[in-house]
Amino acid sequence: MAAIPRARVPFWRNVRTLEFLGQIVFIVLLAGALWGGRVALQESFLRQNIRLDWGFFRQTAGFELTALTWTIDLDTWRLKDYEPTDSHAEAMIAGLFNTITVALLGIALATILGLLVGIGRLSRNWLLNRLAMAYVELFRNTPLLVQLFFWYFAVMLQLPNGSPQQPPIRFFGDFIVLTNGGLAFGGTVAERFGRLIVDGGVQLTTEFSALVAGLAVYTSAFIAEIIRGGILAVSRGQMEAARSLGLTHGQALRLIVLPQALRIVIPPLGNQFLNLTKNSSLALGIGYAEFLTAANTVSSQSFRSLETFTVVTLGYLALSLIISGFLNLIRARLRLAPA
């Protein structure tokens, strides 16, 4: 074989050199932009005489929180109940705990509701199908804040107040009791000052119930569409193979189609979990003391909004990254054997 002389490539046509140069140019531009931003910020801080001061976080908060109020004692690193004598930082940690509670409960409820509605959306039963469609379109196409107001003012606050004229709504004996004071599970109903109220059990406040219901229902409409898409993406042959083996439609759905559909929907489902978590900050509108509401109070008391909302931003970022991390773990666990 005749040796082909190896041609020397001039650097402006060499792909590798060009890629390397491209990286350098990008890094220089980015560094310049960051430096420029820093200089501009510094000048504007100096001009307006702003100095960052984080000390107020350790000052006494002095306000009550309208919710479950766990926090971490920053001196002993122990879990404790939040009290108004605690610091601003501890008030915000209590808010963060409430956000996490709302997010976890909301995600669980939204997933269950979304799964049911998504399956209903594919039902051959005309009425069920249309009802599921109406559900999706209604809750997907109205603003979440409006829905939260609806759940809070038009549903929760209109419940009976527990007086003899307006007895509480009960399900399964006293297991679930609904009044305009909130939702109670597993307590016992007792009379106090002429009203029936619940002792013990798990008691959820009006704001909390409205927030979780609103977030779960709103998000479930999106999840339903994702589930529907996931089921449709599983090939029809899977259902046919399962049916031809004698499995019922329900068994085929549960054992064959859904496990595959869930693998497909995990990434978009994760986005909805993140949306729900971030949307929980709309609780500011109905006064439930989650992270943003607590921070808002801290900010207006201390006049330190810049510092407070820096912490809020980082707090939500951290929460979202943790959820993403969990979802990636689940996705890795569920990945199908390599083809």
């Binding site: 899977q238 193979a241 068994q251």
Partner: peptide, 28 residues
């Protein structure tokens, strides 16, 4: 009473070969 074999196999990709074969006796 009727077994069916498809052009595109339609095996269940999330189950092992053994689970694919054992599924119907187990569930039905």
């Amino acid at each position: 009473e009727v077994g069916m074999v498809f052009q595109s196999f339609n095996l269940f990709p999330h189950l092992t070969a053994l689970q694919n074969v054992g599924l119907a006796p187990l569930q039905v």
